[in-house]
């Protein structure tokens, strides 16, 4: 049986328009039980798109005040690729502090975790979870959810790129013969040790091939990846 997170990702995978992304992010926020989840992208032409659960008056205020220029999350993540806890960012300047006070007053929360994503041709996106709580509680949340937040962030971006008008499908998401072999054997119920032996690779290498296939399939774990590959007819058991 599939877990809630995977079901939401299934729905995201079938999104036909940007409004479906909004539906997915609302469902994910509820599932993660945080105050907000937001996905925001900018491409090289300067076009912006966002979806998420921030209140509309905050979104409007952000645009009106041109907060993009002072927001330490944007400043700290732009052109980079490591995920950040907001506490690590530089909030020391006066504009940054008043921006933070304003954000908290609008219910954005005092805690945040943002995943920057570098897409093709200068495209840049951020996927953020924010919440109002103490440091300990936030640390527990990020520790247990960091991996999934990173994976979901990239899935959102993948989907948003696919929905961009005039975009050609990416060849890099195709599975290689070795990845198909690995998933097929796992789907047949072989243990990792047996699969590695059959493919004459180490288990360590197998783990990386499976991780690579999982990422291309937009799945959260191996079982989910196998289910996706089967349902798309990429592997036959």
């Amino acid at each position: 049986m599939m877990h809630r997170r995977e079901l939401i990702l299934e729905a995201l995978g079938q999104a036909l328009g940007l409004e479906d992304l909004q539906e997915s992010i609302v469902a994910l926020r509820k599932h993660f039980r945080v105050d907000h989840l937001v996905y925001h992208w900018v491409n090289s032409a300067g076009d912006q798109y966002g979806c998420g659960t921030y209140p509309s008056d905050w979104v409007q205020r952000y645009l009106d005040q041109d907060y993009l220029r002072v927001d330490p999350v944007i400043v700290g993540c732009y052109q980079r690729f490591h995920p950040v806890d907001w506490k690590r960012l530089d909030w020391s300047s006066k504009p940054a502090r008043s921006f933070q006070a304003d954000a908290i007053a609008h219910g954005i929360g005092n805690q945040g975790f943002s995943v920057p994503i570098r897409g093709p041709n200068g495209q840049f996106a951020l996927f953020t979870a924010s919440h109002h709580c103490g440091d300990m509680e936030w640390e527990r949340f990020t520790e247990s959810n960091r991996r999934d937040l990173i994976l979901i962030a990239h899935e959102f971006n993948q989907k948003a790129l696919e929905l961009e008008p005039g975009r050609k499908p990416e060849k890099s998401r195709n599975l290689s013969p070795r990845e198909i072999d690995a998933l097929t054997l796992i789907a047949m119920g072989y243990s990792r040790a047996q699969v590695a032996e059959a493919l004459t690779i180490s288990e360590h290498t197998l783990r990386v091939y499976i991780e690579s296939a999982r990422s291309k399939l937009g799945a959260l774990n191996t079982t989910h990846a196998v289910a996706r590959a089967l349902s798309r007819g990429l592997i036959i058991v």
């Binding site: 994503i117 991996r147 990173i150 994976l151 962030a153 990239h154 890099s172 290689s176 013969p177 070795r178 990845e179 690779i201 990386v208 091939y209 991780e211 690579s212 999982r214 990422s215 291309k216």
Partner: peptide
């Protein structure tokens, strides 16, 4: 890499 394009946010 046996033709495997190793691509993941975790690698």
């Amino acid at each position: 890499t046996d033709g495997v394009r190793i691509s993941s946010p975790l690698i």
